[in-house]
Design a protein around this nucleic acid. Structure first.
Lengths: 124, 124
DNA sequence: CCGCATCCCATATGATACTG
DNA sequence: CAGTATCATATGGGATGCGG
């Protein structure tokens, strides 16, 4: 990531967007945070298999991209909470159709999914 | 690609979809083919910077994924044409919102884009 | 012209250990 | 708990050359 793929390669913003969500866990993080703010350790547990390094890297990139907000509480037990910015929410919304497509055509099934990123709970 | 990222990582189809369009040039290819069928060399020219190997690899993966159709004409001058399958068209449509998001929020501008992937010319 | 095979490198990702 | 540093590995992707 952050390699700034040559602009205008495809002529639309997909390429640019792909860079933002290009990380292996980016979409998962996005999805996890879509419901509520989470602490570092929480995200770790919600994303089985991700390592601290990768999680931290992705989180920082996403923060740089303006889709994730990092709230630090300098309490005695260190605490940091990550949440989606309004921009992150819009990204999640833009991602929804793709998610549905994948579910429909790839996972080969439309379970009665609980529409989280379709605009129902974009309040956070 | 083809690594079959662990299913259910994020709980929705985004992860699955990401695998289909995960290649560096996948989305560009998709976008290029969205307008009309193209020959190998054409695609090469349309995607400045891509190498034959990568282009061929991506094309094959996309064919395997059922989003690209490969038509072979065994004429004296070898000719092969690639085009989007109906599934590929739907993928492009699902990708449209993401593309718009990227254009709006990343490229920082909504030029009066010629809506190619929004369903206007999904005829082929 | 279409496409594949091989070698090579850059990068992303992962495992582990350590610091505040 | 949060985050960093280092090392190791896997994969993608690029360069080049060959075959149909």
């Amino acid at each position: 990531m952050r390699t700034a793929r040559r602009p205008g390669a495809s002529g639309c913003g997909i390429d640019a967007a792909m860079e933002v969500i290009g990380g292996k866990w980016k979409s998962s993080i996005l999805w996890a945070l879509n419901e509520r703010a989470c602490r570092f350790g929480e995200l770790r547990r919600m994303l089985p298999g991700v390592t601290e390094k990768v999680l931290a890297s992705h989180l920082r990139e996403m923060e740089t991209d303006g889709i994730v907000h990092r709230e630090v509480y300098d309490e005695v037990p260190p605490r940091v909470e990550y949440s989606l910015t309004p921009l992150g929410v819009t990204l999640n919304e833009a991602l929804a159709p793709l998610g549905e497509w994948g579910r429909e055509h790839l996972l080969g099934g439309r379970a009665d999914h609980h529409v989280d990123a379709t605009g129902d709970r974009v309040s956070g």
